[in-house]
Design a protein around this nucleic acid. Structure first.
Length: 297
DNA sequence: ATGGTAGGTGGCCTA
C-alpha cells in the first residue's frame, strides 16, 4: 500500500498539479493538508473520476485536511472526538494583529480569533481527519504553525499536540496498523533544517514542541523516513517560496509519515518527491513536496 | 533585522 502526505497550499490553486501528480504516482491513499476549501467545496467528483473516494474537513480560507483512497475509505471523524470530548482543535486565544500576549491558560471566549473572521472562535479549526483505508487507520494532520515562541499560537500548537496524543490513547491501538501523516510544522532534529543557527529562538525547532512530538511518537509511532535514511543531511519536505530557498537547497523536514509497528516493520520504501516542488509547465508547485511510503500489507 | 513569494480575502492575514 502506497500512502502519500502532501501539504498542497490551496487545493483550488493546486488542482491541476495535484491531479497530474496523482496520475503519475498513483498512491493508494493520499492525505492532503491546507486545502483552504470549505468542506463541501472539495472536488469529490473530480477525484472520484480518478478512482478515489475522499473525505474532507475544511473551513475555507485556511487549514483544511482530506484523505483520498482507492482501496476503500470509511468511518472517518474529524476535529475532535465526540465520545471522549477531547477538544482536538480548540481555536487559540489569539488575535491577528492585537499586540497583547493573552494568557494561554484560560480558555478564552470568542472575540476575534482572526479579524473579520467567518469563523466562530469556539469552533475547532480543520486540522485533523481520520479514515480507515484498506484496513489501515489513517490520519491527515495539519499541526498549528506556532508563529513565534512568545505568541499565543505557539501554546496552541503545544496543546494541540497534547490533544493528539490523548486522542491516540483513547481511540487507537499501536498494535493495529496506524499511520499519522501530515504537516507537523516541527523539525525533529537539527539536521532537519538547512542551518540550525538560522533558527535560533524560532518555532519549528524549539525544545518544547520537539518534546510534544516525541510524546506523540512514544504512543507507538515511527518516523519511517528518518528510520530509513538515518542521519543523512539535506532531506527536506518544505522550502519557503521566498528568498529562493528551494534552489538554494534551504528547506525543512516538517512533513512525515508516522507508522505503528505493524506497518513500520513492513516498510518497502519511502520516497520524497523533490521534483514535485518544481514548476511543471503551467502548473505551479506547493511549497511542500509529497512524501510517499510503501508498506507491505 | 528585514525581506523575500504565494495563497487566501476584500481595505491585510497566514505561511
Amino acid at each position: 500500500m502506497k500512502i502519500t502526505t502532501w501539504n498542497v497550499n490551496s487545493l483550488k490553486a493546486r488542482m491541476p498539479y495535484v491531479t497530474a501528480w496523482i496520475e503519475i504516482a498513483k498512491p493508494d491513499v493520499l492525505c492532503l493538508q491546507e486545502t483552504k476549501l470549505k468542506t463541501e467545496a472539495f472536488p469529490f467528483a473530480e477525484f472520484a473520476n480518478l478512482g478515489y473516494e475522499s473525505v474532507h474537513c475544511g473551513q475555507g480560507q485556511w487549514n483544511g485536511v482530506a484523505i483520498l483512497s482507492r482501496v476503500g475509505l470509511e468511518n472517518d471523524f474529524h476535529n475532535f472526538d465526540e465520545q471522549s470530548g477531547i477538544p482536538m482543535m480548540e481555536t487559540p486565544v489569539d488575535s491577528a494583529g492585537s499586540a497583547d500576549s493573552a494568557d494561554t491558560t484560560s480558555n478564552s471566549t470568542s472575540q476575534s480569533a482572526a479579524q473579520g473572521t467567518l469563523q466562530n472562535a469556539a469552533e475547532p479549526e480543520a486540522r485533523l481527519i481520520w479514515a480507515t483505508c484498506g484496513g489501515v487507520r489513517v490520519a491527515s494532520a495539519y499541526v498549528p504553525n506556532g508563529r513565534e515562541l512568545n505568541h499565543p499560537h505557539y501554546h496552541y500548537k503545544l496543546r494541540w499536540l497534547s490533544c493528539l496524543r490523548a486522542h491516540l490513547d483513547l481511540r487507537e491501538s499501536p498494535e493495529a496498523p496506524v499511520v499519522v501523516t501530515g504537516d507537523f510544522n516541527i523539525a525533529p532534529a537539527d539536521n532537519d533544517v538547512w542551518d540550525i543557527e538560522a533558527f535560533a529562538d524560532n518555532t519549528h525547532v524549539s525544545v518544547p514542541e520537539r518534546e510534544k512530538l516525541r510524546e506523540v511518537c512514544e504512543w507507538g509511532l515511527n518516523d519511517v523516513f528518518r528510520d530509513r535514511y538515518g542521519h543523512t543531511d539535506g532531506l527536506y519536505t518544505y522550502w519557503d517560496y521566498r528568498a529562493g530557498r528551494f534552489n538554494r537547497r534551504e528547506g525543512m523536514r516538517i512533513d512525515y509519515i508516522l507508522a505503528s509497528a505493524p506497518l513500520s516493520k513492513n516498510l518497502n520504501w519511502i520516497v520524497l518527491d523533490r521534483n514535485a516542488r518544481k514548476t511543471w509547465g503551467e502548473d505551479k508547485p506547493s511549497d511542500h513536496a509529497p512524501l510517499t511510503a510503501s508498506f507491505e500489507i
